[in-house]
Write a protein that binds this DNA or RNA. Structure first.
Lengths: 192, 192, 192, 192
DNA sequence: GATGAATGAGTGTTCATTCAT
DNA sequence: TATGAATGAACACTCATTCAT
């Protein structure tokens, strides 16, 4: 019957709509058409169900990042790819991204929480990826000589800010935003 | 004795550190050195105490935005001012900004909540301010001809993303980030 | 300004409408246009305010009973007078009677409460009054030979039941009820 | 183990002894030997537990009324049956009757409450039953020509008043009262 | 796998009452 | 007389979790 799957999907929906604290185990079980104790048969408790979902979302997002091509015509294409990929993720897995965006901010004070550790993982990946791009691009004369560390920070803020905007505010109205963002960055970074 | 003030300041701290649901009225009152019912003497309940604090934070942020100069040497200076002001706010009222950044995402599904209405107010202000800058700058030949609506969206995402980064991740390590962000935008927007 | 009187009158109204437990001291004070502590200046507390009102109501009712004529043409007239007087009281002091009728039942388990003691007082008066009537009436041949104790009990139940009906259900629609009740008793008690 | 039954019986006893507001959910659960949340597992809350009990009591009382014989030797027998049945109910289900008698008066201002609607149901039944008796009895020459509507009102007041007297005051001392009441009515209504 | 019944540990809230002025 | 501020003592209710079956 796939009751476990049902349980998870219902939980994703409710957590995304109402937040962790705003969702009760009773509500999840009822809307999933099962009884409460079943949650405790499949998971250690509410929190584990939650982190299971989060890990799933982080896994998929990370997979998307890691499948970005490492060989490209030039360095800016990599940055363009990253912007496009992140926006595409926000469009294709909206509930899970929304869940992360609305639930994690309140949890990052706890450095051991899934939200913190996985977020850090993504940010570190971002940093390496972008720092590498910028350094190579500057060295090759493709980019202007920007301070790498801070520019990486600004780019991450922008990418993250756009995901946030799209998943929390209904940013889907701005369909061309990602192309405009790419062009915005290109003008700023590329020489000539 | 200022017990009310004490109550509010304690609540700001605890809500910012632990979130709304993670903070109990008992804890607030104890740490403020008063009894629980005093909360209910001054406010209608926990939620009203919370929204009082949020309104306060939004008021101060809005005041900062509205005190930005309307007459400047050129249009880009306005954009620069906005970036600097938002980063300065995040640095000068860190707990209140952190509170908004971590508590509001879970509440914007409720269109009538303080988080939603005040956030909308700020975004509208941003939009008008930035659209005006860009239109004038493009008209005067100061800026390249970017699509206004989308570029505004990208700029807001960036500004918001940076505030978020600074208040939730400890972005304070990147002291020069705001100057780098300004330079990033200037290169992208200004002609020659 | 008569704030005390105001307080009492407001309390009568609210207690009658909402019951003792359903009425808060805050509500009484607000609707009376004063502040809560004033209640404690004039009365020892909420309960004393309540018993003050009850005592007042019992006093007035008792006064009405005691002013019934002791010399009448015959014994039945006394019974008639009692029925008429009780119904008239229910009509003329409706809120206070209603208050007693709705608040006292829950309190008679406490034998020391005003409700119990004053009620007992009234019942004893009823018993003496009616037993006297019946004994004399039977002795003189005016009444049939009914068992006095039980008939007194039945008469009290009827009188009380009619007051209750009138003050709780809207028995005021039955304007002729008291005359019918009198006739009902007359046919039952009087000879020929 | 019948914990639910235990809960209900304990609640009946406590509500009858102390009233609704004077009884706490904690007290009910403790005296029933269960924990407080069990109340909320079986009922939506304290009020629903209360109305459940009231409905039960009204159901049983109504059942007793409806099982009265419709065919009798004469019309007065029906009246006699009603008086006897009501007094018997008060004797056989004393706690539930007492609960209704002491709790409902404070609730009839709320026309939608169980107390109001069920009380109305019983009164309507009384009215039909008694009006029918009287009309037939008058038509057949069994009864004197009394005004039906008002006499019904008087009879209901008497029956109700006697139940009240018996359940709130300790009217059980007057064992022959019901026979005396029947005789009282017979003398008043029957011809010759 | 799955559930009906039950619970321990809080949670926000209320309210009569008091105190300093 | 009168009040603004404050509190002690509860109270109904919730929720994640467990246990027997």
């Amino acid at each position: 019957m796939g009751k476990k799957k049902n349980l998870i999907e219902t939980a994703v929906r409710l957590f995304a709509e109402q937040g962790y604290d705003g969702t009760t185990t009773l509500q999840i079980s009822r809307e999933a058409g099962v009884t409460e104790p079943l949650i405790y048969y499949h998971f250690r408790g509410k929190e584990e169900l939650f982190t299971h979902i989060l890990n799933d979302a982080f896994d998929e997002y990370m997979t998307r990042l890691e499948s970005l091509p490492t060989k490209t015509a030039d360095e800016f294409t990599k940055i363009e790819n990253l912007i496009m990929a992140s926006q595409q993720a926000a469009a294709e897995m909206p509930r899970r991204i929304r869940l992360v965006m609305s639930s994690c901010p309140a949890r990052i004070k706890d450095a051991d929480h899934v939200c913190s550790s996985r977020m850090r993982g993504i940010f570190d990946w971002y940093k390496n990826y972008l720092a590498d791009c910028l350094e190579r691009g500057i060295a090759s004369g493709e980019f202007v000589a920007v301070p790498v560390r801070e520019t990486v920070y600004v780019l991450i803020s922008m990418i993250n800010g756009m995901i946030r905007q799209q998943s929390l505010m209904n940013g889907s109205r701005y369909k061309d935003a990602k192309d405009v963002a790419v062009a915005f960055c290109r003008r700023s970074l590329r020489i000539s």
